[in-house]
């Protein structure tokens, strides 16, 4: 956290950025050069957005002057580049509501109840918030939170239960290993007898299966049975299409994350196919003081490229300055020649 915060009241800052992917991170740099302080909110537990969540190891070839860089390296470099501006990061939180205050500033409230007051909001939310994938099993919503869970928050909640885990990635395997000792029974199902999870986890799981402490089936969940949100059993279908009933009262599907627009859809913007229309001079939405950059915006000729987001961030900063510092003159300067900018970057 960069600034002194009074935890009892809202955080007051110049700009709140929704999304800490490459667009949001570079916006901190451009805004920082103009002395605008930023706070970033992201549903993930670390910076980078898609770059770190989806393809940290994959190469990117179209970042200017970086012939090859992986998703993670790009994010690491951006974090290094913006470090002098000491942005506030608020991870594991989702921007939930946005209200215009009487003084013209925005009040943004996250899903944990944290409040921000700022004259400028920049939406850099990419494809939206990362949320767990929900398997297409009829009626699954009715069990969510009581018998169906997409994450483990308190392990004790699963003590003594007949647990069913579905999936073949690290989450599925890790929770199989962690919950097996406290479960009444634990069954893992996956559509194949192979796993993308770390090999040592797979080995440990197989040892538990051999010891009779965990059951594993090549199968998928076809139907849920229960009442009032209390799951009693599921129908499993094996590789040979045979089906059987399996008793369980806690089902944990782990199929990774996908992106959903989420509460941003309720911010009163005129969305076009889940994208936010902006002008191309300021990248401002139809609502003054509310900007959108990166994959989430749309305009004539839009290309969903990281480099487009960088350009958009630079232009947003100019417009944001005029809103946040109405009485100050905006002077355009180059980092190469301006000792003022170099001081801000900590190099002069």
């Amino acid at each position: 956290m960069s600034e002194q915060q009074d935890t009892s009241g809202p955080i007051e800052t110049d700009v709140v950025i929704i999304g800490a992917g490459p667009a949001g991170l570079f916006a901190v740099f451009e805004l920082g050069l103009l002395d605008l302080k930023c706070h970033l909110i992201d549903i993930l537990d670390r910076p980078g957005g898609q770059c770190t969540e989806l393809y940290p190891e994959k190469p990117i070839y179209d970042i200017p002057a970086l012939p090859i860089v992986t998703g993670q390296e790009l994010v690491d470099r951006l974090m290094e580049q913006i470090a002098p501006f000491k942005p506030g990061f608020h991870f594991g939180e989702m921007a939930n509501a946005l209200q215009r205050q009487a003084d013209g500033r925005w009040k943004l409230i996250t899903d944990t109840g944290k409040e921000f007051l700022a004259p400028v909001i920049v939406i850099a939310a990419g494809g939206g918030s990362f949320v767990p994938k929900r398997p297409p099993i009829p009626g699954i919503e009715a069990y969510e939170g009581t018998s169906v869970f997409y994450a483990v928050r308190k392990m004790d909640q699963f003590r003594g239960r007949d647990i069913l885990i579905a999936g073949g990635g690290d989450s599925a395997l890790d929770w199989t290993l962690n919950l097996a000792p406290i479960a009444k029974s634990l069954t893992l199902v996956h559509h194949r007898d192979g796993f993308r999870a770390a090999q040592h986890s797979v080995n440990q799981m197989r040892e538990l299966v051999d010891a009779g402490k965990v059951k594993f089936h090549v199968a998928s969940v076809k139907a849920l049975h229960g009442n009032n949100g209390q799951l009693e059993a599921v129908t499993l279908q094996g590789a040979d299409k045979s089906e059987w009933r399996h008793d369980t009262n806690a089902f944990l599907p782990f199929f990774g994350l996908t992106m959903k627009l989420g509460p941003i859809a309720e911010f009163g913007l005129n969305l076009h196919e889940n994208l936010i229309p902006v002008d191309t001079a300021k990248f401002e939405t139809s609502t003054p003081g509310l900007f959108a950059i990166g994959d989430i915006n749309t305009y004539a000729g839009k290309l969903k490229l990281i480099l487009s987001a960088f350009h958009e961030a630079a232009l947003v900063s100019q417009a944001a300055f005029r809103i946040a510092r109405p009485n100050e003159k905006l002077r355009f300067q180059y980092t190469t020649s301006s000792s003022n900018l170099q001081k801000k970057l900590g190099v002069a």
Partner: peptide, 12 residues
């Protein structure tokens, strides 16, 4: 691709 399909739902 085989690995990535582990992250898909309703795999056949």
């Amino acid at each position: 691709e085989v690995d990535m399909l582990d992250m898909a739902v309703a795999v056949q």
